[in-house]
Each structure stands twice: as C-alpha cells, then as structure tokens.
Computed example of a mutant assay.
Amino acid sequence: MRRRHLIQFAVATLAAASVGVHAQAFPAKPIKLVIAFPAGGPTDITMRQLADNAGKILGQPVIVENKPGAGGTLPAQLLQTSPADGYTLAQIPLGVFRLPYTTRISWDPVKDINYVLNVTGYAFGIVVPADSPLTTWTHFVAWAKANPGKLTYGSTGTLTSPHLTTELIAQKLGLQLLHVPYKGSSELAQAITGGHLMAAADSTGFAPLVQAGKLRVLNTWGEKRLEKFPDAPTLKELGLDIVQNSPFGIGAPKGTPPAVVKRLHDAFKKAMEEPSYVQALARYDMVPMYMSSAGYTKFAQETFAREKALVEKLGLAKPN
C-alpha cells in the first residue's frame, strides 16, 4: 500500500514538474490569435496592434488569423478542437454567450473556454448615407413606422450585438425593420456606401467614413456621447434605456496549464498598456477595458445568463 502511494506521489510530482518546465519554456514557437471579423475592420486593426505588442513581450510572434462568419463565434468554436498548450488563442465576442440559446452546440461557452483577459469593448451606433433624407433619428423612426418592413439596415452578422441591439430598439419603438447581415465592418461599409442599404448598425469602424462626409451618425449606444461625434445623441438621451459596449477579450482552450494562462495574461495586459494600442483603439472611440482571468470568467458567467434573457425577449431562441 505504501509503495503504491509512493509511486502515485512520484507520478504526480513529475507531472507538476513537467507543467512547470513547460510554462517556463513557453512560448517556444509563434502563437496564433484567431479573431472573429475580417481584415481591415476596427477589430482586425486594433487586435493586430495588440498582438504585435504582446509578441515583443513574449519573445515570439503572435500571428493574427481572421475567421469571420457565424456571428463572430468561429474562433471560440475553434478552441474546442485545439490543443490546450497556449499556442492557439481566440477573440471572444459577446455573441459566443448566445450560441446555446440560438443553435445546437456540444460545448459550453462558460465551462469549455479558459478566459485569459478582457481587452476592450466596442463603441456602437446607427449611421445612414450622408445624402439620406433620414437626417435625424426622429426621421428614421417616422419613416420606419410609415413603411413597416421596408427600412433596410445592415449589421456585422446575425445575432451579433449590433443586430440584437437594433432589434431591441425596434421592439421598444414598435418598428419593423429589414435586417441584412454581413461578415464584418469592412463588408458592411461597402454595402452602405454603395447604396445597398438605408442604414447600418455597427461599431465605430464607420468613423473614417463619417469624417470623410460619406455617412451620418444618428445615435450612439454608450453611457455618454462620443467625443468624436458630439452631435450624435445616445440611446438614453432618445428615451431608450439601453447601453451597449460589448466587451471582448481573449480565450484559450479548456485545460490550458494555469502557469501558461498567467504568462499570456501578463503579456497581453502589458501589451494593452502600450501607447500604440491605446492610440489604435482611439481611432474608433474604443478604450482599454481590462478584466483579469478571474474577473473575465465571472463576466462570462453573468453575461451567459443575461444574454439568454435578451434572446428570449426578442423571440430568437431555438425551439426545444
């Protein structure tokens, strides 16, 4: 009996030592960071700057791979089949927490992702072409009420925060809008500037087009007005008790060694504090929004429950 206990103790000690050595040697090769939206949009631009900063801190490149589609949930799904060694990371947009309520999946967004840290959140709003007759939110609402189901708006994908928040706005105001999903901000921008849509709900990736005089902002969705668009009212100012900033961060596969998660957390936290990242975010009225591994895990648990209520309220939950 004592011999068996000694053997078990020796095996456990070797395993712990192996994890410790692995963590000390990590990373020994480039790390892949998969993001949920296409190249050229605000997520891609800001995450590439963050990845570049983190790579310098870690001593190995952090290579960004774009995997758009499915409402921004493909990177999180990729984690379910990736080795738990810290070399595959994924952006986790809010849409990940809605997945089990809208489609059938075999994994749990809270339990089956190792939450490393939260890095930022989006600033959102609704825009129209600069030459649109819908010059204010009042005009937008009036036209939509007079023409049920005919006002077309685009978003960065079905069940993304821009889509669900716009549907919530429409529900509160008694509007019927026609939703057209796209794979990301760059594709959506081409559609609205090309005259294919009457409006777009998006993160402030639309900022350069507004500044170029091609789009007009009708409202923004934060707690207060954006410095870049001081004339655009918030939803709260328009009488809608809605604030949406959609925090997102970085996740690793379930079972990634704690020491590796800590190494990644510390490197990306330091990378967030670099002026180059802060400046990249500022282009889109975004700011660093840090949550620790424990804080981000708690946020995931709370958001998972909150998103269920939203999906059910909008009647978008999958049938049992």
Rank of each mutant, 00 (worst) to 15 (best):
L197P: 09
L197K: 02
L197C: 07
L197Q: 05
M198S: 06
A199Y: 01
A199V: 04
A199G: 06
A200H: 02
A200P: 01
D202T: 10
D202M: 10
T204I: 05
T204L: 12
G205D: 15
G205N: 14
G205R: 02
F206V: 15
P208N: 04
V210S: 03
Q211T: 14
Q211P: 07
A212P: 12
A212M: 12
A212V: 11
G213V: 13
G213I: 13
K214T: 10
K214H: 14
L215Q: 11
L215I: 10
R216L: 13
V217A: 13
V217Y: 01
N219E: 09
N219P: 04
W221M: 00
W221N: 00
G222Y: 03
G222V: 07
K224A: 12
K224P: 03
R225Y: 05
L226P: 04
L226V: 07
E227A: 12
E227W: 07
E227G: 06
K228V: 15
P230V: 02
A232I: 08
P233L: 11
P233H: 07
P233M: 09
T234Q: 03
L235N: 00
K236Q: 15
K236G: 01
K236Y: 04
E237Q: 11
L238A: 02
G239Y: 04
G239T: 02
L240F: 03
L240T: 01
L240Q: 11
D241E: 13
I242H: 00
I242R: 00
V243P: 00
V243Y: 00
V243W: 00
Q244H: 03
N245A: 05
G249T: 07
I250F: 13
I250V: 15
I250C: 14
G251Q: 03
A252G: 06
A252Q: 08
P253T: 12
P253D: 06
P253G: 05
P253M: 10
K254D: 11
K254I: 11
P257Y: 05
P257V: 06
A259W: 08
A259V: 07
V260H: 04
V260D: 01
V260N: 03
V261M: 09
V261P: 01
R263A: 14
R263L: 11
L264Y: 06
L264K: 07
H265R: 08
H265S: 10
A267G: 07
F268Y: 13
F268I: 09
